[in-house]
């Protein structure tokens, strides 16, 4: 809160100046900077950051060890993509990097967003900030952009660190193809965490108590990570076709189950990362034998990989934007005088 007041002082100094566009941007950038500073100094963030860093570094380390000590499998079409394999390989002791991010990324997003609006509101800070000559949406935008910057910097540096360490270890740099794929993987990870961030910001706008918004957000996360797979299993049992059913029926069933699973954001994320990090994957759904006839196992060009998982990526990006739009809408219509 001290920092917030400090910010207000700065803003007050700006008051005599005419509020042109540059000043608006300046004010916004100050809001964002304060937001980032708040996050970095907050204990909840530091603790979560430590958990994520430790687990990710541990999984990357085990992956590097596993890759270093095992001879490549002959005829492995992914053999040329060493740097991609680091993020997907595991020697069994730890889940691989992309699984960890899929699991802990939501927690990070929730942690950065669940008290974004309601804590300020409860602390009577919201009214004071918005009494400054800035646009009202700057507050929410700054909350979002600040948290997004923190997430982006965190994952970018984590992946860059891994690439650097791997380059040191093996003695050759990643190829251009791998760099492209890793760049897109970073973007996708940021979008995925941003989705949970936006969702928790939405709850922080809707619910007056921080505890409520935090619990609701974590409940949704728990639902999708723990209960949703159980529900899907129950549904699968119910609609499972006879083992002697025709191929078409089995295909239809598998498509249906996949569609159900893709309602979970983590499934969308893992589909996207699998396509980006394993270039030899050619399809995410079940395939007919006739589709595989004559197929040569070879890595797909990046463009084709994106096309295969494009609908999943679109869903993730669109959900993120829609969540932001919803929180924006509710925030703008919120009664802030109390």
């Amino acid at each position: 809160m001290v920092s917030k007041i400090f910010m207000l002082i700065i803003l007050k100094e700006d008051l005599p100046m005419t509020l042109n566009k540059n000043n608006n941007l300046y004010a916004f950038s100050i809001l964002v900077k304060k937001e980032i500073a708040d996050h970095i100094r907050s204990w909840k963030f530091i603790i979560l950051l430590a958990i994520i860093l430790l687990t990710c570094i541990a999984s990357l380390y085990t992956a590097l060890q596993a890759l270093k000590n095992t001879a490549p499998v002959p005829n492995d079409p992914d053999a040329a993509f060493f740097f991609l394999k680091i993020f997907t390989t595991s020697d069994g002791t730890m889940p691989s990097f992309h699984l960890f991010v899929g699991f802990l990324g939501p927690l990070l997003g929730i942690c950065l967003g669940f008290d974004a609006v309601n804590s300020e509101f409860n602390g009577r800070m919201l009214g004071r900030i918005l009494s400054q000559p800035i646009h009202r949406d700057y507050f929410l935008n700054a909350k979002f952009i600040g948290a997004l910057t923190v997430i982006g910097v965190l994952f970018t540096s984590l992946i860059l660190l891994t690439i650097g360490a791997a380059t040191l270890l093996v003695g050759f740099p990643p190829t251009f193809m791998e760099c492209n794929r890793l760049f897109l993987f970073t973007l996708l990870t940021i979008v995925y965490v941003a989705f949970w961030l936006n969702l928790s910001i939405l709850f922080s706008v809707r619910f007056r108590h921080t505890a409520t918004s935090a619990l609701v957000a974590i409940a949704i996360w728990l639902f999708f990570t723990v209960f949703y797979p159980i529900i899907i299993n129950i549904v699968a049992k119910a609609v499972q076709p006879n083992p002697y059913a025709s191929d078409a029926e089995i295909m239809q069933y598998q498509h249906f189950m996949l569609t159900l699973m893709r309602f979970a954001p983590s499934q969308l994320y893992s589909d996207g990362t699998n396509m980006l990090l394993m270039p030899s994957i050619r399809s995410l759904g079940p395939l007919h034998m006739e589709q595989l006839q004559g197929a040569i196992p070879s890595p797909l060009p990046i463009w084709e990989s994106i096309k295969v998982a494009w609908s999943q990526m679109v869903a993730l990006i669109a959900c993120t934007i829609v969540c932001f739009a919803a929180s924006y809408y509710f925030f703008m219509r919120k009664e802030i005088r109390c």
Partner: peptide, 12 residues
């Protein structure tokens, strides 16, 4: 190529 052909390499 077949309507349902998946992306990637095929050999004919």
């Amino acid at each position: 190529p077949a309507k349902k052909a998946i992306a990637g390499d095929y050999q004919i």
